[in-house]
Amino acid sequence: MSYTVNCSILLTELPLLERPAAAKAAGFDAVEFWWPFAGSVPTDKDVNAFEQAITDAGVQLTGLNFNAGDMPAGDRGLVSWTGRSSEFTDNIAVVAGIGERLGCKAFNALYGNRLEGSTAAEQDELAVANLVAAAEGVARIGGTVLLEPVSGTPAYPLKTAQDALAVIAKTQAAGVDNVKLLADFYHLAVNGDDVAVVIENHAKDFGHIQIADNPGRGAPGTGELPLGEWIARSRELGYNGYIGLEYKAPAAEAFTWAIRQRSTSQA
């Protein structure tokens, strides 16, 4: 199974630049990150340090978010944020550059929350324009822009797979074909989507899968979601990408489920 460790939500007891090596020590060869910098255009020094941490650890960077704003404060993306469009577009070249140097081809563009000072129509029009610009920006390195339904944030308008797919259809109508659904099974389940139906209808077109169990957004096996079944069915229907581990767990026990899984498969 090709798992990739989200080092922005896991191994957080360690400084960010030490997490790729910790993921490698835990037995994983791939990592993904939310945007790891304070602004859209970080210094060359900061970018070089991040890239060096990945390469020194001997892991593959499989996914990277565009700048999504201040996530701890509740921001969930700049894509539809009127007034901050230049920050998003300035970020595109930086993201593509990191992707090109590290061989990463999947880039998550969080849509952004609804704003009091803008209409939904204005935000949605801006979002399509920004997603198209991002898609064109990463196309030169064979990249894909990911669009994700998210739970836990009422102001975030993309709740279901269909919400995201409707936006993706607009980007296709605008002339790009490299914006894909990020199917985070946890978010979809929490928002009430029928994950099994989403898989049946769209697995072959998923841009990426991420997992966490529910309740609690914990490690696989700590909740009630049939994550193993959903992953297996997605594979059967044509999804052949990584499975992103994007859950909350203390470092000491974050991967005990995977160790048990490996032991069982080797027995």
Rank of each mutant, 00 (worst) to 15 (best):
17 L>R: 08
17 L>Y: 07
20 P>R: 04
20 P>Q: 09
23 A>N: 11
24 K>I: 12
24 K>R: 15
25 A>M: 08
27 G>S: 07
28 F>G: 10
29 D>I: 09
30 A>G: 08
30 A>P: 01
32 E>T: 08
34 W>G: 12
35 W>Y: 15
39 G>K: 12
39 G>T: 15
40 S>W: 02
40 S>Y: 01
42 P>Y: 00
42 P>H: 01
43 T>G: 13
44 D>M: 04
44 D>E: 15
44 D>W: 05
46 D>M: 09
47 V>D: 02
50 F>K: 14
51 E>M: 15
51 E>L: 11
53 A>Q: 07
57 A>M: 08
57 A>S: 11
59 V>D: 02
59 V>M: 09
59 V>K: 04
60 Q>F: 07
61 L>N: 06
63 G>C: 03
65 N>T: 13
66 F>G: 09
69 G>C: 10
70 D>H: 11
71 M>I: 15
72 P>E: 07
73 A>T: 12
76 R>P: 15
76 R>N: 13
78 L>E: 00
79 V>E: 04
79 V>Y: 05
81 W>M: 03
82 T>S: 00
83 G>F: 03
83 G>Y: 05
86 S>N: 12
86 S>K: 09
87 E>A: 14
87 E>L: 12
88 F>H: 12
89 T>N: 00
92 I>G: 13
92 I>L: 10
92 I>M: 09
94 V>E: 05
97 G>Y: 10
98 I>G: 10
98 I>N: 11
99 G>F: 07
102 L>C: 12
104 C>F: 05
105 K>T: 15
106 A>C: 07
109 A>V: 13
109 A>N: 02
112 G>E: 00
112 G>R: 03
115 L>A: 12
117 G>E: 12
117 G>K: 05
117 G>T: 11
118 S>M: 09
121 A>F: 02
122 E>H: 04
123 Q>Y: 01
123 Q>S: 07
126 L>Y: 05
127 A>Q: 02
128 V>N: 01
129 A>Y: 07
130 N>I: 11
130 N>V: 13
131 L>W: 01
131 L>I: 09
135 A>W: 02
138 V>G: 08
138 V>Y: 07
140 R>Y: 01
141 I>A: 03
141 I>E: 09
142 G>D: 03
142 G>L: 01
143 G>M: 03
144 T>H: 05
144 T>Y: 00
145 V>M: 01
145 V>G: 01
147 L>P: 04
148 E>L: 13
